[in-house]
Design a protein around this nucleic acid. Structure first.
Length: 364
DNA sequence: CAAACGTGGCG
DNA sequence: TCGCCAAGTTT
């Protein structure tokens, strides 16, 4: 049965492999690394344009290692999970400085690099170096849980171990990179989360879930907790043609990105009181809160936010200083585009440009 | 080891 | 509007 799986899979892959920009006859380990990191928790269609721009600007380990982190984050902006970009940058520097720019081929060595966990290490080792290792991602967990009719929740560590072992048992003697990618492509194009296309599946005759008509009930997921909602304020503080932005601490949400300063509304506070308090705590200055600039809704992975942005002016003889921020800077409105930002702050920055200069230039 | 960590698309 | 999902890693 295990041999059948890989044989049918590899046969199917010859005709049905997706044509993706990072897939080459002899894959460049760097290209595999970049694509794998970008693809973590992120759709292929989203990644492709980012990958193309990235490889154009940072075509190899050396250019990435030498680039300033700020520019790296700017190229990553919009992809989310920004620690991936920082870790990828650090990994490039480590490989250049400590490995003479040559990738280690062993799973355990790869996994020591920042941002490279068990899946990514296995993907690089198999795809770029032909190592005999199963790389098991979300797609493959879905495919194999159906194929072997695994009814325990796939989120459980024991279940993951079980699936990892099954994937390893199905591993062919060679072409392990193709095997791993074939399983992923099957999951992405045929063995879909909802309404799998079993009539197109090369493994349908082997699939236990299909035989028992359970393909729509597997994989089993555990219920998720509901996520909280928070209200926050932000200040657009202008001084002549400059606006004040703050850089978030390196670790944590949107780490290292720039934003319009502000923070969470507390117990029974008005929006205006909140903003004055936050700016005093963060920047050490008193402000006057002006007109409402806009209200923005956004959903992160583990909470929702409603952000109220206000225009504001400093009413203080002291200049602002970075108390909680990594750094603060007065910048011209057009230069806002050079600073990496999260979704909401980028939207505010763009609206600021439009209101100042009309819908002509500088946008995007 | 459960929780933190982004964003866009879809029903 | 809303929940769920998508090539995981780190703490």
């Amino acid at each position: 049965m295990f041999t059948q799986v890989s044989q049918r899979l590899l046969e199917w892959y010859k005709d049905h492999a997706r044509n993706l920009p990072w897939r080459k006859e002899n894959p460049d380990p760097y290209a595999v690394l970049v694509s794998e990191i970008m693809l973590q928790q992120t759709r292929v269609e989203t990644v492709i344009p980012y990958y193309e721009r990235w490889m154009n600007r940072f075509p190899n380990l050396e250019t990435l290692a030498q680039a300033p982190l700020e520019e790296v984050l700017r190229y990553w902006e919009g992809l989310g999970y920004y620690s991936r970009a920082r870790n990828l940058h650090r990994t490039a520097q480590i490989l250049v400085q400590s490995y003479q720019g040559i990738f280690p081929q062993e799973l355990s060595d790869l996994q020591k690099l920042p941002g490279i966990g068990i899946y990514t290490a296995a993907a690089i080792a198999s795809i770029a170096f032909g190592q005999k290792i199963a790389a098991v991602d979300g797609n493959i967990r879905r495919v194999l849980s159906r194929l072997f009719q695994i009814t325990e929740p796939v989120s459980l560590p024991e279940t993951r171990d079980k699936i990892q072992n099954l994937a390893q048992q199905c591993l062919p003697p060679d072409k392990t990179g193709d095997y791993n990618q074939a399983l992923m492509d099957l999951g992405a194009t045929v063995c879909l989360p909802r309404f799998p296309k079993c009539d197109l599946c090369p493994l349908v005759q082997l699939c236990l879930a299909y035989q028992n008509r359970k393909q729509n009930e597997i994989p089993v997921k555990t219920g998720k907790k509901s996520i909280p909602s928070v209200v926050v304020t932000a200040a657009i503080i202008e001084d002549r043609d400059r606006v004040l932005i703050a850089q978030r601490p390196e670790n944590g949400l949107l780490g290292g990105l720039w934003e319009f300063p502000g923070g969470k509304v507390e117990n029974g506070e008005t929006l205006s009181e909140c903003l004055k308090r936050e700016i005093f705590e963060e920047l050490g200055v008193l402000i006057e809160v002006g007109q409402l600039f806009g209200v923005y809704h956004h959903a992160y992975t583990h909470f929702k936010v409603v952000l109220h942005a206000f225009e504001a002016q400093i009413q203080d003889s002291q200049p602002p200083r970075p108390i909680q921020a990594e750094e603060i800077r007065w910048v011209s409105i057009p230069s806002l585009q050079e600073y990496p930002m999260g979704k909401i702050d980028r939207l505010i920055a763009r609206e600021l440009v439009e209101r100042k200069y009309g819908n002509r230039k500088f946008v995007g």
